[in-house]
């Protein structure tokens, strides 16, 4: 569905993207993760036919973005990271405008717009002016706008940025619905946990290079067994702290209310060894396992020191 071959983009002497090879199958949700300035938006702009790559090729639904932009535009719904809305238009008219822009016959629009507003839970705001809607509502309206022409591929650039946790969850629910509808979705974020539940595959990009790509578990394993661990002890907390701080495989040790948090660089065998050491030191271990923020650790570990 989406394929890039040796895609590169330079702004002057700055390499925003170098030699990106991506392959996203139909119906898959691909999470695109990277820190600020990694080149996520650049990739998406190229895929949305808004930016010319310096080198390489990008295909969407089999169409080349450079050679057949009109066909590509018809098959994608693109949501930029920042976008504005028009004043003095109601939500219904806003969608009607874009339906017109995609040359959808006027007779079909009324039903279509009602369906879309229903999908993004904005039916009750159909006649409100779009500039009076909240950020989260505008974001959902923007998503509805992407779907006006029923594209096969959705390219969403940080759709959750600037949303509160509740709005994020709502957005995620809508995206799950879209996944169930069989859309291929490319979604970017710099927060990995946000994508974890949603994505079939993730790609991690840093300084224009794709440094990890694959199913979520594969990527984690590829991170050289780095995991964020949580250890809780009942007694002898001091002893446990000493053991942990002496262990060479333990990085970024933090002592918190409920226990110790650290990054562990090692496989399963080393983990067992560490637990044995803790027990031998006399610490009463009540919890020894992966922390719930594990994904962030993976992200930090993967992106750490690349190109630096």
């Amino acid at each position: 569905m989406i394929e890039t071959v040796h895609l590169s983009k330079r702004y002057g002497s700055l390499r925003a993207l170098s030699d990106l090879n991506l392959r996203i199958e139909q119906g898959k949700v691909f999470g695109f993760i990277g820190p600020n300035g990694a080149g996520k938006s650049t990739t998406m702009l190229i895929l949305a036919t808004l930016l010319e790559p310096t080198e390489g090729q990008a295909l969407v639904c089999g169409y080349d973005v450079m050679k057949e932009p009109a066909a590509v535009r018809q098959s994608i719904g693109y949501m930029p990271d920042f976008f504005g809305v028009y004043d003095n238009l109601t939500a219904r008219e806003y969608l009607d405008f874009y339906a017109g822009a995609y040359k959808i016959p006027a007779s079909k629009r009324t039903a279509l717009i009602a369906d879309l507003l229903e999908l993004v839970n904005l039916s009750n705001k159909a006649d409100a002016y779009v500039d009076s809607l909240s950020r989260g509502m505008q974001q959902r309206l923007g998503l509805a706008r992407c779907l006006v022409h029923d594209p096969e591929v959705l390219i969403l650039d940080e759709p959750a940025s600037g949303l509160d946790p509740r709005a994020r969850i709502e957005l995620r629910e809508i995206l799950k619905q879209l996944r169930a509808m069989g859309k291929t979705i490319l979604i970017s974020s710099h927060i990995l946990p946000e994508l974890a539940e949603l994505c079939d595959e993730i790609g991690v990009i840093e300084q224009g290079r794709l440094i990890a790509c694959g199913a979520l578990d594969d990527v984690s394993v590829r991170a050289r067994g780095i995991t964020l661990m949580l250890v809780r002890t009942l007694t002898n907390r001091h002893q446990a702290g000493r053991v942990l701080s002496q262990c060479p495989l333990v990085k970024d040790l933090e002592e918190q209310e409920d226990g110790f948090r650290f990054r562990f660089v090692g496989g399963e065998a080393e983990k067992a060894g560490l637990l044995q050491e803790l027990v031998d030191a006399g610490a009463a271990v009540t919890y020894f396992g992966e922390s719930s923020e594990n994904l962030e650790a993976v992200f930090l570990a993967i992106t750490e020191g690349v190109g630096g």
Partner: peptide, 13 residues
Amino acid sequence: ERQTLNILLTTQL
């Protein structure tokens, strides 16, 4: 400036 141009350019207009 309103950041609507990019969206407009990805439509069939």
